[in-house]
Simulated scan of single mutants.
Amino acid sequence: MTKPLASMTGFARGSGNAQACSFTIELKTVNARGLDIRLRIPTGLDDLEHLARKRLSQRLNRGAVNLALNVSNNSAQTEVTVNEQALGTALDAIDTLSGRIEADRPRLDGILALKGVLEVKEAELTDEARTQLKDSIMAEMDIVIDDLLEGRRLEGAQLLEVIADRLTEIESLTAAAESNPSRNREVILERLKDQISALTESEVGLSEERLHQEALVLATKADIREELDRLTAHVAAARNLIKQGGPVGRKLDFLAQEFNREANTLCSKSNNVDLTAIGLDLKASIDQLREQIQNIE
């Protein structure tokens, strides 16, 4: 079964609960030359980074990938501890000021209320609870990746329609260049005769051998047969890649560059207004094609 084309742009979000914790996963992808994965994992769950990176690498081929995991502990259980260093600093300051200022010494509740003296921490999860939380996160991550891929496939289908239209347009313009009257044998010969006549009548004397060489150059410049054949072949190759499906974005991008090369050569060889106009339309259509192709995985 042919794998459909997919865009590199997508977004998906998921959430869940496990072991008195709630979590959210946000996954976003944008265009990139290769696969660039960036993760934001909370402290204490660092070992999930390797698992998440591996999972994403298995499912995605190209794109800049940003995954953010946020976890909140909803447990009412907390641990209160005294920061001995902060308490010692506060007591030293009180002793110092007592000798300089006449005032009652602060009460215990006042000292404990000083910033940093008391530290309130969420209760640590047990190893078993942490394992269950990680399992829940990874299960939800698979769902989020599925949602992302589905979104990328839907956008890929829309891109495919635009790309197919551009290929049809390029094919039509190539056919128009093929049938342009300026490419008739008689017209080309007449133009060559005029150019050779201009060379022979110029003040610069040309030997018969040099004149023959100049005639060959003029004939070669007037012939766009190879460019037209290559444009036709590139259209067929692009359609075959689309039919093949899967991650073919790089190959399509290379073809778009080749399309542009042939259109540039066609324009440079043209000495007919109508043919030049066709060449410029080709370049515009090829630019639109490449713009869409760069979104393909």
Results as ranks from 00 to 15, higher is better:
268 S>P: 02
258 E>T: 06
265 T>L: 07
275 L>K: 10
285 S>I: 03
257 Q>M: 05
287 D>F: 07
254 F>H: 07
277 A>D: 14
287 D>S: 14
277 A>F: 09
251 K>H: 13
273 V>T: 14
250 R>K: 15
286 I>F: 09
250 R>P: 10
284 A>Y: 13
252 L>P: 02
257 Q>Y: 06
249 G>V: 04
245 G>Y: 02
280 L>W: 01
254 F>K: 05
245 G>A: 02
244 Q>D: 11
266 L>P: 09
280 L>S: 02
248 V>R: 13
267 C>V: 03
265 T>V: 06
258 E>P: 14
273 V>I: 14
276 T>N: 12
269 K>T: 06
270 S>M: 00
286 I>C: 10
252 L>A: 09
283 K>R: 14
250 R>D: 10
270 S>R: 02
257 Q>H: 09
271 N>Q: 15
264 N>E: 10
260 N>R: 10
263 A>L: 02
246 G>I: 01
276 T>R: 10
244 Q>Y: 03
281 D>N: 15
259 F>H: 04
249 G>H: 06
253 D>S: 04
254 F>Q: 08
258 E>L: 08
248 V>E: 11
267 C>S: 10
251 K>I: 01
287 D>C: 05
278 I>W: 08
248 V>Q: 15
263 A>E: 01
247 P>W: 07
279 G>F: 09
264 N>G: 13
284 A>S: 15
283 K>H: 05
270 S>L: 00
254 F>Y: 10
262 E>I: 02
254 F>C: 08
267 C>A: 09
275 L>M: 14
260 N>D: 13
262 E>N: 08
273 V>C: 06
283 K>Y: 05
253 D>Q: 03
279 G>R: 11
280 L>E: 12
276 T>S: 15
252 L>W: 04
286 I>K: 08
244 Q>M: 05
267 C>K: 02
266 L>C: 07
